[in-house]
Amino acid sequence: MMGLWRKIPEGWRSLLGLWAAILLLFGIGGMISPGFFSVSQAGAIFRSASFIGLVAMGQTLAILIGGIDLSVGPLVSLGSVFGCLMLAGRDENNLWAISAILLIGVAAGVLNGVGVSLLGISPMVMTLATGAIVTGAVLIYSQGAPTGNASPALRAVGVGFTWSIPNSVLIWLALGAILSLVLKFTTFGRGIYYLGANETAARFSGLRVNFIKTAVYALSGLTAALTGIIIAGYTSVAFVAAGRDYPMQSIAAAVIGGVAMTGGRGGYGGAAAGAVLLCLIESLLTNLNMQEPGRKIMNGLVIIMLMSFYYRKRLDAASKKKAAT
């Protein structure tokens, strides 16, 4: 058994480990609380995970290039609020409203990208600032009390199922798969890893560093805005604080999934598994009737436990392989 484990290449091991943990927890949940291990419960969990996972798509890219995107929270809120306001519950508005919101998301991302690459502002601060501007826009537009409804088509996406799988999960799977492919097999994806590993060397290798950075933040803004729209479909009405937890949750998902904060290491598969794990634990705890305080505490403890696992692994690997100096 151990021999089999060793044969699996490094990158796949942690992914497998995560999914093993997920299955294990599902099983435990099923044992403790009948009805937990059911399609409907899984559906609910995966739907929540899809929201985090979609935001985590952009966040993973940002972390891979050694940055971070704290503007995703406000952008999700923007998607939700502007979505409902612009759609006003009518399908005719779908095309232009959704396009407009996605465009705003991209614009915010480009602003981030420009600030980080041309002005040299640290990503944490730049995205924080952009997030503040977006928050302002959301509040001003809605005056704190957003109105409007999601269109029927959007509601179908947010709430409906296809082949017993929530629609948002299908969208997530499709987009997530595309992202993984891009990261592994395209020059753009490879460029992201180079950038994250050593920006100067990437520049000297002729990579268009500024373009990649801007594109990454633009994509992050896009996925965050998209998530907000889908969430509007799920909740039907808008919430100003819809995106509040998403910056931290998307980062947590990526970190649990093995994406290193220093950049250049990790992939989207791990982040997706991380999103599922987070939602699973939340759901499990709710099922156990643990109140919000307890759930928050568990959330934090899980992150620490998983992170310690990764760092111990990396430390061991580094000290074993290091050639004598």
């Binding site: 904060m261 928050k296 934090g300 992150i303 620490i304 992170m307 760092y311």
Partner: peptide, 26 residues
């Protein structure tokens, strides 16, 4: 946590912020 092991401060404090929030709510 940060001094004893090389855990990145970002993640440790991210996690602990959740834990302490839970404490406050409790």
């Amino acid at each position: 946590l940060i001094a004893k092991w090389p855990f990145p401060p970002f993640i440790v404090t991210l996690a602990s912020s959740s834990v302490y929030l839970g404490l406050a709510l409790y």
